[in-house]
Design a protein around this nucleic acid. Sequence first.
DNA 1: TATGAATGAGACTTCATTCAT
DNA 2: GATGAATGAAGTCTCATTCAT
Lengths: 213, 213, 213, 213
Amino acid sequence: MASSTSAGGMRRTPRQGRSQERVNRILNVAEELFIAEGYTATTTNTIATRAQVPIGSLYQFFPDKAAILQALARRYTEKLHQALLEFHQQENLELPLPLYVEQMIEVTNRFFTTHPGYHAIFMEVQGTMPELGEIEATADTQLIQEFTRSIAQRNPALTREDCEAIAFVLVKTIGTLLWLALSQEGGFRDRLVAETKKLALGYLQTYFTPLRR
Amino acid sequence: MASSTSAGGMRRTPRQGRSQERVNRILNVAEELFIAEGYTATTTNTIATRAQVPIGSLYQFFPDKAAILQALARRYTEKLHQALLEFHQQENLELPLPLYVEQMIEVTNRFFTTHPGYHAIFMEVQGTMPELGEIEATADTQLIQEFTRSIAQRNPALTREDCEAIAFVLVKTIGTLLWLALSQEGGFRDRLVAETKKLALGYLQTYFTPLRR
Amino acid sequence: MASSTSAGGMRRTPRQGRSQERVNRILNVAEELFIAEGYTATTTNTIATRAQVPIGSLYQFFPDKAAILQALARRYTEKLHQALLEFHQQENLELPLPLYVEQMIEVTNRFFTTHPGYHAIFMEVQGTMPELGEIEATADTQLIQEFTRSIAQRNPALTREDCEAIAFVLVKTIGTLLWLALSQEGGFRDRLVAETKKLALGYLQTYFTPLRR
Amino acid sequence: MASSTSAGGMRRTPRQGRSQERVNRILNVAEELFIAEGYTATTTNTIATRAQVPIGSLYQFFPDKAAILQALARRYTEKLHQALLEFHQQENLELPLPLYVEQMIEVTNRFFTTHPGYHAIFMEVQGTMPELGEIEATADTQLIQEFTRSIAQRNPALTREDCEAIAFVLVKTIGTLLWLALSQEGGFRDRLVAETKKLALGYLQTYFTPLRR
DNA sequence: TATGAATGAGACTTCATTCAT
DNA sequence: GATGAATGAAGTCTCATTCAT
């Protein structure tokens, strides 16, 4: 599975209409199939056929199967980063902590609901695809930096190290719980989202409010 | 990947010495390979060869490749369950909350350190292997019941629903963070374990101590 | 074309009847096809089909397509070496030079007539298949040593360096000319073989008899 | 590999500057690649890219891949023929035999040193590319005629048949040995060239001087 | 019961050539 | 005429599983 040849990127990044649309179709179809059947069980020919693109063209855009997964991963991480960046650029940083957590998790949850493949896809190839690991690492680093900044602003007494540990825990915990929530049924699902908020808030409060114990 | 034929379990559970040892060797080798190369990239023939077991014999113990993963899964979950059961059977239930959390996470962390394949292996086939999903679900249910009991005992005011949601969040969060900690370097790794304790404690306290806010 | 993975040998060397026969059939069919269509134009599936062997079995004996060519090469060189070894083991070493050359070239020519693929196959992949180059080199070294010994015995005044250069020239020249003769028509063909003898004799005589010029 | 469609030559022989230069670039790049990677392993797209010529344009000059090899072949044979023609047009025909051989082989060796692809390229497709066979045959015929004339002039007693056989042997032997010399290391290389002279001279002398034996 | 050679569908990928622009 | 994106047949090789011995 480990792809050693794929340069990690696309072969040709088309800016024009038709090709760009083809690439999108490929990515969308791949997303569906990867979620439904898994990365390994999905064949490049199936992707091409369902995307109505000749297999040769698929390979003109992507050097190999792994590159499709990587492009998908990049598309995901960019979108999530974008969403959180937008969220943090607004006046939300000055919100009281409970509200901040509440809204931040709402934003994240919205992302996972709209992109159910995010975690699903990354999980299958964990560890066996170095390139993907790097993409995820980069994305995480971005997210964590995002949070680190937000945390540091709220409590300037914290060291950079503290902030990073906190951000890491937050990003991973929230990510996992909201993703797991996805596959739960209605009532319990909402409850899980609510619990996630509680968990995150409880954790952050131990750093931001005087501890009375 | 989805194994439709596998009867869901082992073909024959050998009690005799030689066979039992062979099965163990298969499982141990499979664990190593699944971690190192991934489930899909590992071939049944490689497992058999490395375990010094004829491929034909392997298929006498396991109906198909998936069954090996399932047996591994069962072995894992049994051990984790066992560890937490032991932990809960002692006087630990009566410990003050912080100490309880502290020790419970220590136990769990010990398990993950000793069984690095636990999460690694399961993640790859998430969603694409119904049988495995069931095993994990069963395991989770057990763990969650374990915790549910412990939680209910500490705060009888909580409904069963509450307890289950709390337990779910706890099991999943702790599981994920400790697993992620595994692949971090020394200093940060310890910090993550510490943060996990903080997170769990902070969360549980919102349920067990009067909230003053 | 350059095969980097093939370990250079066969995957399994069967000593038993049925498998050994299969390997031979594969080799024979491959030989025919390589000569007729060329190495590259011949597909592994065609070889398997014509040899009445499932493609999977072919790959159980040979790790890749290149390995078939290599096995063929080895089979050839062994036979040629064998033929010349036999020739040199007899009393032929003591034959007068003209007779020695005459008979030696007869032996070689017989080999080329019976194994028309020898040169044909080597030529196509010259330089692009390191493993094959090595096999050829080894074979040449053997042949050259063979001749070197024979030459040294006839004229002990020659240095080892001399003998090797002479043997090299002889082996390569004779090999090429006899191979080229193969594809010529009847009359001219025989003439070429005769000329080869003349050429070799003329050359050797410059080393073995007093030069009068 | 056998190109059945190729009209046997170039599509358009451009006399104008830009096109002529493009064709030369294509031929030069192709030569490099054919030597380095082999004919089959080299793709037309790679040639076009490296030659900085659009693939479409390449196919306007050459009907198919084989035509490039053929053009290369023609370029080679023309040059070699040219070199030997020049050599034979001078007073060299009247040189004493040893000097004649000496100089003729020097000229040939110079050609092979400057055009290392000559043999390398042709060998790969020996027999599998009819068109190329013809080109080589034509070239050989020219060379052989050249030599035939030279030989006939030296010994008018020889029949035309004799001369042709001698010329064939000479052309092929010298060609092969000098080509093989190319890939040998310094000292041995020079020795091989010297041996080639000796071989050729020894052979010719059997036809030109009274044999005393 | 134990063995391991045998099987073949099907996976990924390439590349000579075309033709709409 | 010039361009280069598009095409898809076809190639090499893998591997879970069986079954004759």
